[in-house]
């Protein structure tokens, strides 16, 4: 009983939204907007549910004194402090922005910085892990793009730098071609997935 009902609802709403794009009737537009609003509201509520779940998980971990509960203390304290500050001073208040600017941004920025070192190390060991034609091509491409990104000691090498340099050529031809192919594939896949959902074949909603 549960599966057919949810499937019917999903198909009906999907068709209504789709028809709103093809049939420029005010009724369909209105229905589409209403359904979208409902979806956006549900997505917003889902954020609250996620926050609540996070709070419960870490709270349970603290209550059971499980290993790693110290980090749960930090999470809950930070969450509560941010909520309190934002509630008091607003999301764009001074202290709210201060917490964001001096805690969240540096933490995440440092993680991205470590990534740079990891990527360089991985590129250096690429040929050791796998030595074949495609790995060599990839290795060479990386070097060309990196070198063509910046002038070498302030000197732009003709043929490498510039609008018609090797770097621009690699980016605009093979990279763009590949990107276009990927985008087309993604679009077709999304289209097929949407049709399958509208037909009831796929039921990602758990029906």
């Amino acid at each position: 009983m549960k599966a057919p009902v949810s499937t019917a609802i999903a198909i009906a709403f999907g068709l209504i939204v789709l028809l709103g794009y093809f049939i420029p009737l005010p009724l369909f537009n209105a229905l589409r907007d209403i359904l979208l609003e409902w979806a956006i509201v549900l997505a917003g509520v889902a954020v609250f549910v996620g926050v609540a779940n996070l709070f419960l998980v870490h709270g349970r971990k603290i209550s059971r004194s499980q290993p790693g509960s110290g980090y749960s203390y930090v999470v809950i304290i930070a969450m509560l402090a941010t909520i309190i500050v934002a509630a008091l001073f607003g999301p764009t208040g001074y202290w709210s922005l201060w917490l964001f600017k001096n805690i969240q941004v540096p933490v995440e920025t440092s993680l991205i910085g470590v990534l740079a070192i990891i990527l360089v190390y991985a590129a250096a060991r690429l040929l050791r892990r796998k030595l074949n034609l495609f790995s060599i091509i990839f290795f060479a491409t990386v070097l060309v793009v990196l070198l063509g990104s910046v002038p070498l000691l302030g000197i732009e090498i003709p043929g490498l730098h510039g609008e018609f340099g090797l770097r621009s050529l690699l980016i605009q031809l093979p990279a763009v071609a590949g990107a276009r192919g990927i985008l087309l594939g993604v679009a077709l896949g999304a289209l097929a997935a949407g049709i399958r959902v509208l037909m009831g074949v796929d039921r990602p909603y758990g029906g």
């Binding site: 360089v120 250096a124 040929l127 050791r128 290795f139 910046v150």
Partner: peptide
């Protein structure tokens, strides 16, 4: 630019060593 050059050098050296 300088760090990029250094990264390129490091990558190249690593590749050469691997080869």
């Amino acid at each position: 630019s300088l760090s990029m050059l250094a990264a390129v050098i490091l990558i190249a050296l690593g590749g050469l060593v691997s080869l």
